[in-house]
């Protein structure tokens, strides 16, 4: 294996890293907010809220992300005059916003189910106990349901973030020059597929290992009551990281 070539490729691919991270970060954030809304909608008892949320989750989990990307980018491109009349064309004109929309909607559908499951997993006794202490709905959500559900959701959410990082590679197909796009271009120029994809793969792997580690750390930090009592006082708080 040609190490000099690999090093050169790695550096060239790093140019796409900011875009990859931006796509992953924003889509997880926007998708997360939307997911929370969807989860609350489907947990409400009102059919007018429950059914749209369920339909959304059904459609976006039942179709491939790549189809959603194409539908939003090329499919909506067909309706430029209408979208211009509505004044939203500037948004759909940009490949970046199209990719971000597709990624966010997609992750929202998956994350909504994770959040819903996490909220449902909160033991009823704890909610009852909270009510018995006279907590209002908001206090209950903030003090009891929120923290417990968050801890419960973390492992699954970690997987979802990892798959979002991986999914950003699909943006390469609609002209966005992130890591996979550059990798494809380099292959077309040098015709050395295996080496280039090893380099690109290692970049994603490193991001994902960092994400997984960070969330494991968060989980550890959030569950002090599940840990065995320390034999001697911990040296410093930094030990948590």
């Amino acid at each position: 294996m040609d190490l000099a070539f690999m090093a050169e490729t790695w550096l060239a691919l790093l140019a796409g890293l900011p875009l990859t991270l931006r796509l992953a970060g924003w889509s997880v954030l926007c998708g997360g907010v939307l997911a929370l809304v969807l989860a609350l909608m489907s947990l409400s008892r009102h059919p007018a809220l429950v059914w749209p949320a369920r339909a959304f989750v059904f459609v976006f989990r039942g179709t491939p992300l790549l189809v959603q990307v194409f539908l939003i980018y090329y499919g909506l491109g067909q309706f430029r005059p209408t979208l211009q009349a509505w004044g939203v064309w500037w948004f759909f004109r940009e490949a970046y916003w199209c990719a971000l929309t597709a990624l966010s909607l997609n992750t929202a559908a998956y994350a909504a189910e994770i959040i819903r499951g996490a909220i449902l997993s909160v033991p009823y006794g704890q909610i009852e106990a909270g009510r018995a202490c006279g907590m209002g709905r908001l206090t209950l959500a903030r003090r009891i349901v929120g923290p417990i559900a968050l801890r419960q959701a973390l492992p699954a959410y970690s997987n979802e973030i990892v798959s979002m990082v991986k999914a950003t590679s699909l943006a390469s197909i609609i002209t966005l020059a992130e890591v996979t796009f550059i990798a494809q271009k380099l292959i077309a120029q040098t015709f050395r597929a295996v080496e280039i994809f090893i380099c690109a793969g290692s970049i994603y792997l490193l991001i994902n290992i960092a994400v997984t580690r960070a969330i494991l750390g968060l989980e550890y930090w959030l569950s002090p009551h599940l840990r065995a009592a320390p034999r001697e006082p911990p040296a410093s708080e930094a030990a948590h990281a």
Partner: peptide, 15 residues
């Protein structure tokens, strides 16, 4: 599980 599936597919395809 950590590498984009698109990359894996390319790897199999060309490699």
């Amino acid at each position: 599980r950590g590498v984009p599936d698109l990359l894996v597919i390319y790897l199999f395809y060309f490699g």
